[in-house]
């Protein structure tokens, strides 16, 4: 599963919403995810991909998070 799909599914599961509505440009605040929701989402991704993500580098959109995960996987 590619990183974007995994993130979209994890968010959709958390919000009880449809993953197909999420795009790389979608902002976390549009998804009504607050800072602690995002932190828990990142923990899930860290477990899934065996990586560590620096929270200080986190941007505002789903695409920003995809880039961070991809960087951490290199």
């Amino acid at each position: 599963m590619d990183v974007f799909t995994k993130i979209a599914q994890a968010i959709a599961q958390r919000r009880g919403s449809d993953a197909s509505q999420i795009t790389p440009e979608t902002r976390f605040d549009e998804l009504q995810l607050d800072s602690l929701d995002v932190a828990e989402l990142i923990m899930e991704l860290e477990d899934e991909f065996s990586i560590t993500i620096d929270m200080a580098q986190l941007g505002a959109t789903v695409g920003d998070l995809v880039n961070l995960v991809n960087e951490a996987r290199k």
Partner: peptide, 10 residues
């Protein structure tokens, strides 16, 4: 740093 503390704690 709330998010980092949350991650650490959990």
């Amino acid at each position: 740093e709330g998010q980092e503390v949350f991650k650490f704690a959990v």
